[in-house]
């Protein structure tokens, strides 16, 4: 009885622009509880600094310009690695999706390489490139390559053959067939690859910077550990979370713009 009574009220609670707000309720709640626990002395600040202390550390680093420099350096490495690895992965995905010969030549090799965890190559990469920029970019590119390669290939292979037949009947050239039928058909799958790749991109970069770097976010965190600046360590971790979210939102926006034809993206 009381449950049934409460139902309409629950519905009435829904605000007009609630969707954008609802997703932030849980992170905000965690932040509030965290601050309360630290202020009340339940958690020792040597284990976990209060959010206010982390914010303060962030403010100090921002004022010295150190924070912006490190974020920029990390972002730049991530972007270059993503473009190189993603570009090569996309090219191989296209080639192997469209050509039997290319697929026979390279797919088996690529699948074998894929099964090596790319972070296991860090010692080798350090020996090859030292702790130079090249080492980090190489690792990011390698990590990003496979999700994009596999999803591009899958997208092209699963384009509806009936649509391809239709295109041929209506006299489309190979190029038109690609730009009007095959590529748009593969695009949803390519986006799945991009979103996977963005996750791997950050992961790889942070690990690489933590192990071997003299600048960047991962380096900042390791440096802070040396000096027991736990607030800076936590700050770095929070920045990773924010950057990851940002990259994901950007790819979602791009998806929404290019896949507006897709039933899943149509507003009703």
């Amino acid at each position: 009885m009381s449950l049934i009574d409460s139902l309409p009220r629950v519905r009435a609670l829904r605000l007009p622009r609630a969707d954008g707000f609802v997703q932030w309720i849980v992170p905000l709640a965690i932040l509030v509880i965290w601050q309360a626990a630290c202020s009340a002395g339940l958690v020792p600040t040597r284990v976990l600094p209060a959010p206010s202390d982390v914010a303060l550390a962030g403010w100090k680093l921002a004022r010295s310009g150190e924070l912006a420099t490190n974020i920029w350096v990390s972002f730049w490495r991530a972007a270059i690695g993503f473009v190189i690895g993603g570009g090569i992965g996309f090219a191989f995905g296209l080639a192997n999706g469209l050509s039997q010969l290319s697929s026979k030549l390279s797919d088996t090799t690529l699948q074998m390489v894929r099964n090596v965890p790319h972070l296991a190559l860090i010692p080798l990469v350090i020996l090859w490139f030292g702790i130079d920029e090249t080492a980090k970019i190489f690792l990011v590119a390698l990590g990003v390559f496979f999700p994009i390669y596999i999803n591009t290939l899958h997208g092209i292979r699963t384009v509806d053959p009936q649509l391809i037949e239709m295109g041929r009947i209506y006299g489309m050239s190979d190029r038109e067939l690609f730009t009007r039928v095959i590529f748009p058909g593969a695009l949803p799958s390519i986006f799945v690859g991009i979103r996977f790749a963005l996750g791997i991109m950050w992961l790889t970069l942070i690990v690489a910077e933590t192990i071997a770097a003299s600048s960047g976010l991962g380096y900042m965190a390791m440096q802070a550990r040396e000096f027991m600046q736990i607030d800076v360590v936590v700050l770095s971790i929070l920045i990773y979370a924010a950057l990851g979210k940002l990259a994901d939102s950007a790819s979602r926006l791009l998806e929404r713009l290019t896949l507006s034809w897709h039933p899943a993206f149509q507003k009703h």
């Binding site: 009936q162 649509l163 239709m166 209506y170 006299g171 489309m172 009007r180 748009p184 695009l187 034809w261």
Partner: peptide
Amino acid sequence: REEIRVMFQEPRLLPWARVLANVEVGLG
């Protein structure tokens, strides 16, 4: 070849092209 056209059981429309663009495909 363009004078002989086929219509299938499935409409085989390009989902990523608007209706008018789909009809224009028929012009070869």
